[in-house]
Write a protein that binds this DNA or RNA. Structure first.
Lengths: 224, 224
DNA sequence: AATGCACTGGAACGGCGTTCCAGCGCCTCC
DNA sequence: GGAGGCGCTGGAACGCCGTTCCAGTGCATT
């Protein structure tokens, strides 16, 4: 035990599930969704691909664990006196900011069946929906609507992040898309053309919370 | 030209973009999201993988084309006298039913950047949002909220379809998930536990349209 | 008959997730 | 203190994928 404490590692630091997940997150953040590879991960950890499988069952579990770690960090605070509407907004924005900083969790959450990271978010929303005074029979619907909206935004956000190269700025990207919308066939895409300007000027975060507010209005209108 | 009409094909039917897309849709429907492979596709078309690339640039384009074909079919009708709320519900349900019949388009739509199939849906929603009398400045937000909600549901639906084997019935699947929710830690997942029953008994389609109505209520409340 | 060309399909390439297994160092037991 | 077991490692190998390459095929034109 003493010798173990003094020189416990075969390498500087032994492999472990946490170290692997952490490395996977860094890889996903820096190299993008396609950058997570067992070989790249093994290189970064100075080992071989086979060693990773001793700690993690496969790629799905690795992605779920990475998503769970990031989501758990994002779902921290609940100042306990916050009104439910505000708490929902804060919670949703927490998830949004996490998905903005790590677009790959948008893909992962949208793809995942009812797994741990998703359940955390659902639970957080549901508690506040309850606090909002929504009748029990409508709580599932209300929480699901909010969750699905968030997942939809996350998926789109990830798709956009995948679409444009990191060296092109967000403004350039929006300009490009907005211009392509403005050039659509006026007969077939009249509406889309008419909001091309709003697309160029909009603020993702504000737009996101506006959608949340829309749903909250719908929920509370039903309540009373 | 006459000879071309009489015996136009080297095989019974020549390869073409449409035939390839159609075969891809069948493959995705029968073998699932992972079943679409250039080799499997080539087998089904009695050719080699290389030949397909003469007609289609790559897998992304193939998936987009397949999604576009299915979505276009689902977005057909607009009886022209329908009130906007009803029209939005009908449109959303059209997309929902398509995603239910072909879960892979849920994944594809949720993953896609602003591509042709997605734009079709956005345009359809936006037109009805306009007809609803939503002020111009709020139209983008309203249409986006509806679209993102639909995309979220589609992604979850696809995830569930991926999750359970086709031989287990939907009721069994819901029972399993509901039971696992009921067994969660009471401290950490109080809300989720409390709605486990609603999960077991709910009707996906009705739940989906309830969410749409929630958002519609929010949209029209703002309007007047 | 010869040439050109749209189109075909099988072989091959590089990379992926995953599996296999010989080997390493530590801990335990005789 | 030597032997053996075991947790863990990491490199080689397998099968499948998307994609590319290219020699070949048959039709239309010359």
């Amino acid at each position: 035990m003493a010798s173990r404490a003094r020189r416990p590692e075969r390498r500087e630091e032994p492999l472990s599930r946490e170290r692997i997940v952490e490395a996977a997150i860094e890889l996903l953040d820096t190299a993008g969704e396609g950058g997570l590879t067992f070989r790249a991960l093994a290189d970064r950890l100075a080992t071989g691909p086979g060693a990773i499988y001793w700690h993690i069952a496969g790629k799905d579990e690795l992605l779920t664990a990475a998503t769970d770690a990031v989501v758990a960090r994002a779902l921290a605070p609940d100042p306990a006196g916050t009104p439910p509407q505000e708490a929902i907004r804060a919670l949703a924005l927490g998830v949004f900011d996490a998905m903005d900083a790590h677009p790959w969790i948008g893909t992962q959450l949208a793809r995942a069946p009812a797994q741990s990271p998703l359940l955390r978010v659902f639970e957080g929303i549901g508690c506040q929906v309850q606090a909002l005074g929504v009748p029990h029979a409508a709580q599932f619907t209300a929480a699901s609507a909010l969750l699905n909206y968030i997942l939809g935004v996350g998926g789109q956000n990830a798709a956009n992040a995948r679409g444009h190269r990191p060296d092109t700025s967000r403004a350039e990207f929006l300009d490009t898309v907005s211009a392509s919308w403005a050039n659509l066939d006026p007969d077939e895409f009249a509406f889309t053309r008419s909001v091309a300007g709003q697309l160029r000027d909009h603020d993702d975060r504000a737009e996101f919370v506006a959608g949340i507010d829309l749903i909250l209005t719908g929920i509370t209108a039903h309540t009373g």
